[in-house]
Each structure stands twice: as structure tokens, then as C-alpha cells.
Design a protein around this nucleic acid. Sequence first.
DNA 1: TATGAATGAGGCTTCATTCAT
DNA 2: CATGAATGAAGCCTCATTCAT
Lengths: 197, 197, 197, 197
Amino acid sequence: MKKEDPKESKQGAILKAAVELFEGRRFDEVKLDEIAAAAGVGKGTLYLYFKNKEDLFAQLAVDGIDGMTERIHEIAAMESAYKERLFLFGREFADFLAKRHGVMGVMNQVQSVPVDKVFRNHHDRMIEAIHELLQKGMDEGALRNDFQVSELRCALVGPILLKIRRAARVGEAIALKALLEFFWAGAAAKRKKGQHD
Amino acid sequence: MKKEDPKESKQGAILKAAVELFEGRRFDEVKLDEIAAAAGVGKGTLYLYFKNKEDLFAQLAVDGIDGMTERIHEIAAMESAYKERLFLFGREFADFLAKRHGVMGVMNQVQSVPVDKVFRNHHDRMIEAIHELLQKGMDEGALRNDFQVSELRCALVGPILLKIRRAARVGEAIALKALLEFFWAGAAAKRKKGQHD
Amino acid sequence: MKKEDPKESKQGAILKAAVELFEGRRFDEVKLDEIAAAAGVGKGTLYLYFKNKEDLFAQLAVDGIDGMTERIHEIAAMESAYKERLFLFGREFADFLAKRHGVMGVMNQVQSVPVDKVFRNHHDRMIEAIHELLQKGMDEGALRNDFQVSELRCALVGPILLKIRRAARVGEAIALKALLEFFWAGAAAKRKKGQHD
Amino acid sequence: MKKEDPKESKQGAILKAAVELFEGRRFDEVKLDEIAAAAGVGKGTLYLYFKNKEDLFAQLAVDGIDGMTERIHEIAAMESAYKERLFLFGREFADFLAKRHGVMGVMNQVQSVPVDKVFRNHHDRMIEAIHELLQKGMDEGALRNDFQVSELRCALVGPILLKIRRAARVGEAIALKALLEFFWAGAAAKRKKGQHD
DNA sequence: TATGAATGAGGCTTCATTCAT
DNA sequence: CATGAATGAAGCCTCATTCAT
């Protein structure tokens, strides 16, 4: 009980320090010395938990994705009206991206094949979760079903990602609600007269 | 006249070589040696045309953006139906991103303040051009005007960017038309009966 | 009595593991982690028995030398014909080298002054024992006495060392007998007719 | 003419500096910084001429061996009495070892397979040259032919190597002549009466 | 203008050593 | 006595940048 925690908390501390150092900076701009210092551990300690710098960043990227994936499944399984679930997802996903988009951006640059594969694995699982959420919307008759799910996903996620990125850079306020409403306007199934969501 | 051309072609050759080397790789993964070799020039020559590595990448990012900006203005000024102009933009913009999204991704990571500012300058001008295109759509009554232009831009560009990125990675075919239709479905102004675009 | 044994056996286990790991590898190629693992003890335990890495290797080199020295004295004191004693020494010394030449080779590289001195001490004692053996041969009239003892030692030991080394590398069979016979052919005192060894 | 020389002289300077720094020290004790400084070049320059530290040391070991090999062939081809040629070889080989035995010693420890192979290649060629010299002695009737050449080689070279090593350590004078005479005493073919060399 | 040999700052990484348990 | 997680000094090596030609 005592033993397990410090170990995880040490690795966790490193990852936490790394995410922050990493936001808005290139892979090569972040030095392992910095990370070690920020995490309050020795440089050598990093190598007890990570194979090398790239591995550290891969785990950084993976870390959190899984949590989000889990959360999406939860949201999809909720009982509330579909639009509510969708908007809830939008908000939580935006929060997630706000914290991770820097790391994700770098991972999209990473070449190193083995590292990349691990990341993609987890990333794909998250995408599948989103697909599930959208598929459910179609099955429930809440979303139009004359588009591919993957197109809907792009239409939903793409704008959020772009907005978050620019917000991070320019400091623009994130009019998330508007983006979601726009998506809804285009994606909601055409109800027969008299209906509304 | 004669002098200018070889110079530009040499600088152009370097940039061309660099873009390709850079796609899908991190800033630090691409070595100046490689670029020089690929461009068929000596290593020292790079410094005749670029202040340093970051400057080279900044110009790389800028290069092409201006052309795209110009093109957007042209498209916006065309006489055809708005939907056609919009879709034309979508196609050309997707082509542009397909070639540049790697570089753009890295630029979004670059920290170096002065370099960044140059890039952002040009980037912002391109964004303004897109705004102009969308604004025109509203003014012409083709697009709904109950959203901010910047939101519409995200809704239009975000999905394309996301799709392109994934396509580059997974090799998925790009169902660009579907994305554009989806945007149109949500963004087109509700016409009174009897209208069409 | 009971206490002494496990301790020695632990130290012995470490040394035994180290000799093997060390054969044919450089000082810096052998990691203390390896030694600890091979010896079946914790890394920290090494420091209970040895001051540091160099000390461990010094003891490694010393370990065995003393036994050999002792044995040479025994052989020299035997009653058998001198040639027999000489050849017995040759065989046992070759065995000794076969197990240790790697370690000895590294010790010949070691710079660290204090460590070196300890090794040289023991090494010199072994050389003296060989000198004693050879001197006895001269005194008994079995070896020619128109050469310095130290030259004879080189002539006897040098070829064996060289042979052993190459054998270790190439896997050549060790024609030890031939080498000893050659030495004997050159070093045996010219007998007056009718004598034999 | 001007170009060729500096290049070779630079690589030569590095090797020269390295041999000296290396004598009597372990592989890991010699730092590349030292070598660069001693050679009067920048650290990075080392990597223009050598793949890495091990490669540098391999070339160090190889460098000179080839010269010695060549020289042995020359000596073997001389017209003088065989004993003279043999002793000439002895002296020059001793000189060679005096300068290189440290390096050779380390090479005998090196594990790294590819590097090792290169060294062994050249080393074997030198051994073959010695064999040639000794074979010639047998063919000319100067050396006894009831021993294998390789045994004679050990008997000749082993003592020299041992002597040189100890001399380097203790500062003992090298009684090379005595060693050679001893070898000759044992290895010279028994002449029929009235003959002498 | 063009080159590429030379450089050296600085990063990643290793590993001997320590020390709290 | 025994351990092995943690450490950080220090080395190898890379690579952007310079400069003599």
C-alpha cells in the first residue's frame, strides 16, 4: 500500500512535470535535465521508468488518452438525451485537448516506429470510442445516418481541435458551445414536424 | 534577370527538398546535411539563403502560405455560385494541406519567438482570407449569419485538417466531398422556398 | 567458524563469477550489475567485500596467484628428477594461465597506483618462486648457468603465455609438451657423456 | 600534393597522440577529449576519421602492424646469414613491441566483434610473416625442423613480449641479446662437426 | 557565390556508488 | 548483513554553425 504508491507517484510525477514542460515546445527543446529537475528526481531516475527520451514522450502521450477513452465509453452509456451526451463529450474532450494538444502534436511528428505504434494503438482506441458514441446517436435516431461515422467524427472533433490550438496560441476565448451547436445543426437527424431536441 | 533566376531556383530547390524531408518527421530529426544533400548544394550554402535552421523552417512554412492566401482571394472574387466557390476552396485547401501539414504541425510547436512571429503573420493573413471568403458567403446570403465567422472557419477547416492528417498516416482515402457537404448542410442559409444556390 | 564460511563463500562466489565474466573483455565492459547478478547477490553487497570496482579486480587478479606461488614452492621442493618438476610446473602454470590470462592482461593495463601495487606485490612473489625453481635447476646442475635466471624465466614462461592466449582466441590445441621440450633443449645443461636427467 | 598530406597528417597526428596517451592505461581511462587535445584537433574532428572510440583504437592497433609485417618480409628476403636475419628481426620486433605493447594488450581485451576482426586480420598477417621467416630458416637448414613452426614462433616471440612488458613496468634493462641467444641455442639445427653459423 | 572540413557546445545516456530500509 | 532504488558526475557523440579557400 505504501510501496505501490510512491513508485507510481514517481513515474506519475515525471509525466506530470513533462507534460507541462512540453506544452508549446518542440521535442528537442525540452531537455531531460529540465524534466528531472521539475519532477524533483535525479536525471538517472528517468531511465528507471523510461527507456529513453522518445519512450518518455510516448508514454506521455498515451497517458491520459486511455482515461479519455474510458470516459467516452461512460458518456456513451449514459441515459440522458443524446444531445446532452454529445455536448458533454464535447466539453470534456475540449478540456482533454487543452491539456494535451501540445503533446499530441509532437506525437504526430514522431517518426520512431516502435514508439509511434504504441501511441497509435491507444489513439485508435480513443477514436473507436468516439465512433461508438456517434454510432449510438445514429442508432437512436438522433443523428443523421447518411454520412459515414468517420466523417461525422472529423466534423465534430476537427473544429474543436483547431479552436483549442488557436486559443492556446492567441488566447482567444473558446466558443465551444457555438461549435457544438453548429455540428448539431448539421448532424442532427431531420425530425418530422413538431419535433425538437 | 538572369541572375535572379538561378538564385531563386537554388533557394527554391532547398525549400523543395526540405519540405519533403520534413513531412512526418520532427524538427530535430531532419539534419541540415540531409537537406543540403537532397537539394544538391553544399552545407555552407544553406547559410547564404537562411539565417539558421529555424529560419529555414519558418520560410518553409511561409512559402506556399502566401500563394494559398492569394488563391483564396481569387476564389472569393469569382463569379460562380457560392457553393461552387466554397467547394473549390475546399479542394485546393486540402491539396495545400496535404503537402504542408507536416511543416505546419511543426511550426505550431516552434517556440522561437521571432521566427514564430513571421510565420504567424503570414498564417493570420491566410486566415483573414478565409474569413473574407466566408463573410462574402454571409453577405451574399448563401451562408447563415447567426454564427461568428471564426466559428464557421473552424467548422470548415478543422475537419479537413483532421482528415488530411489521418489520411497521411493511415492512407485512408480522403472523402473530402462528404466533409464539404456536411459543412454545407449545417452552414448554408435556410432558403425560402424556390431558391437554390 | 560457521560465520567465516558463508562469508568467504560469498566473497568467493563473487570472485568466481567475476573471473568468468571478465575473460576476454575489457575492464569497462564488465558492469558491476552483471557481476552481482552472476554471483547471485545484490549490487550493494559487492561493497561489503570490496572497496570499489578496481579493488574487486585487484583481488580477482591476486586471488589464485598466491595459490600458484605456493604450488611452485612445493614443486621446487619435490624429490623427482628436475626435468619432471619443470614439466609439472609447466603444466600447472599453463592451467593457471588458461583460467586467468584475461584478468592478468587487464591488470597489466590498470593504472590506478594503489591497486597496482598490491597486484605487483603478489605477482612479484610468484616470479620469485619461479626464479627459485630455476635457480634450483642450476644449482642441481640440471640447467645451464650461463644465462640469467630472469632470462630463463622469460624463455620458459613467455612461450606458454603466448600459446595460451592464442589458444583462447583461436581455439588452437595447446602443444604444451613441444614448448617445454624446446625450452629443455635450449636450457638443459650440456651433460658429459653418459649422463641423463 | 598539398591536399593529400594534411589529411593524412591529421589522421596520423590523432593516432600518434593516441598511442602515447594509451600506453600503460586502460581503454576507459583514455578520454577522447584528451586525444583530441593532444592531437591538437577539435573533439568532433575525431569523428571525421574514426567511427567511434573503439574504431579509433582498432586503427591504432592496426597502424604499425602492417609496417612491421612488411618489414619482416624484407628481413626474410635478405641475403645475410640466417642468424643475422633472425637477430635483426628480434631487435626490430622488440622495438615495435616496446612502442605498441600497451595498445596490443588492450586489443587482446577488446570484445567488440567487428573491430576485433579487423585487428585479427592484420595481426594474423604479421604472424604469417614470422612463420615465413622461420620456415625459411628450416628450409635453409639453419633451424631444426623437428618442431612445428608455430611452436618456434612462440618460443621466439613469447620471451621478447614478456621481457618488453616487464621492462616497461619495472624499467628493467632489456637483455634482448641473451633471449635471442637462448632461442638460437635451442633452435639452431645441430650442425655436423666443423660447421658454425 | 559556393563549399565542406573543422569545430565545440551541449545533449543523452551510462553506471559506479550510496544509503535508507 | 543485505539490498536495490536513486543518484549525478562524466563520457561519448551529434550536429548546427563557421570560415578559409
